[in-house]
Deep mutational scan, measured.
Amino acid sequence: MSIQHFRVALIPFFAAFCLPVFAHPETLVKVKDAEDQLGARVGYIELDLNSGKILESFRPEERFPMMSTFKVLLCGAVLSRVDAGQEQLGRRIHYSQNDLVEYSPVTEKHLTDGMTVRELCSAAITMSDNTAANLLLTTIGGPKELTAFLHNMGDHVTRLDRWEPELNEAIPNDERDTTMPAAMATTLRKLLTGELLTLASRQQLIDWMEADKVAGPLLRSALPAGWFIADKSGAGERGSRGIIAALGPDGKPSRIVVIYTTGSQATMDERNRQIAEIGASLIKHW
């Protein structure tokens, strides 16, 4: 067993022997301040990774656009098919120029040779490549099948209805392509620590998230040296922004954090800054 596999296998073990965790309302004060600064709703939840206990939450059962955070769930569904012998990570998928959609920095470079399922998941999570996500959605049967996968996990809230990039439209009061912070946090925890996926697939999923290259201005910008984070960000229309993450000190994750916002007129930089400040408060009061 590799060191990384050992780390993920012992996530519940280490967490069980940690000192009790206590909620700190100071972080919620910052979440509410972010709402004021952005002029928009902000949803927040913080779960203990081992027990699933909610440590703090704000608007945990209000719907927010998922945006690209759905790509972690998508690759979880792909990995479940791999575990069941219905898919192979090494299978190569070929596609054409007509398949390319807006923001496809990886797939646009491989029109000639195609990409493997493993490479597509890596591109979808680490670079948020939209064509990679659409190609992977095709392998599982489309958005409705991802929703069905989530329902089978016990998540009857999260739903995907459309493809990239239309799913980022974020129309107010439109339930399409949305989740709730509580539902997303619980589902992410199941994917990373539950028995739904094999140990190898859980490790692969967290490795992809740990290698995320496009979430630097968010929670990662607030992390002290030595902290662990595996995350996936999302951005959408109407001032929408979000991030889902597993993080913790001492090089291992111990909490799940989900943050979503929508309806702001603020710039992307300002949305990023507010999420980073929430992260800084979380870490300060850990």
Rank of each mutant, 00 (worst) to 15 (best):
Ser281Val: 15
Phe22Val: 06
Glu270Ser: 11
Phe22Pro: 05
Arg241Thr: 05
Val72Ala: 08
Leu197Asp: 03
Val258Ile: 13
Thr139Lys: 08
Asp129Lys: 00
Gly251Thr: 09
Pro105Phe: 05
Pro253Glu: 06
Ala34Pro: 02
Val117Arg: 01
Thr112Gln: 15
His24Ser: 12
Ile45Pro: 00
Glu175Gly: 10
Phe22Arg: 10
Asp250Leu: 12
Gly52Thr: 05
Ser201His: 13
Lys213Thr: 08
Ile93His: 05
Val31Arg: 01
Gln203Ser: 13
Ile54Arg: 10
Glu210Pro: 00
Glu61Gln: 14
Arg91Gln: 07
Leu137Gly: 04
Val78Asp: 01
Asp83Ala: 05
Gly85Thr: 07
Asp269Gly: 13
Arg220Gln: 04
Asp250Val: 10
Gly242Tyr: 00
Gly90Tyr: 12
Thr147Val: 11
Phe13Trp: 11
Tyr103Ser: 06
Ser51Lys: 09
Gly142Pro: 02
Lys144Tyr: 13
Thr179Phe: 00
Ser254His: 14
Ser122Ala: 14
Ala183Glu: 12
Lys213Phe: 10
Ala211Val: 08
Thr69Glu: 02
Val214Arg: 06
Gly194Tyr: 08
Leu49Asn: 04
Met153Gly: 08
Ile259Ala: 03
Ala124Ser: 10
Arg41Asn: 10
Phe6Cys: 10
Leu135Met: 10
Gly226Pro: 07
Gly248His: 04
Tyr95Asp: 01
Lys232Ser: 00
Ala246Ile: 13
Ser221Arg: 12
Ala183Gly: 07
Ala170Trp: 11
Thr158Phe: 07
Gly234Ser: 07
Glu169Leu: 13
Ala222Glu: 13
Ala132Glu: 00
Leu218His: 03
Asp129Cys: 01
Val257Leu: 09
Ile93Asp: 02
Thr116Val: 06
Arg162Ile: 02
Ala40His: 04
Glu270Asn: 09
Phe13Arg: 02
Leu282Val: 12
Gly242Ile: 00
Ile171Cys: 14
Ala34Leu: 08
Asp207Glu: 14
Thr187Tyr: 03
Asn173Leu: 14
Gly141Gln: 07
Leu196Trp: 14
Arg176Glu: 07
Glu26Asp: 09
Phe70Tyr: 05
Glu61His: 14
Thr116Met: 06
Leu191Ile: 11
Pro12Gln: 10
Leu38Thr: 09
Lys190Ile: 08
Leu38Gly: 07
Asp48Trp: 03
Leu191Phe: 12
Glu46Asp: 07
Pro20Val: 03
Pro12Lys: 08
Thr126Ser: 12
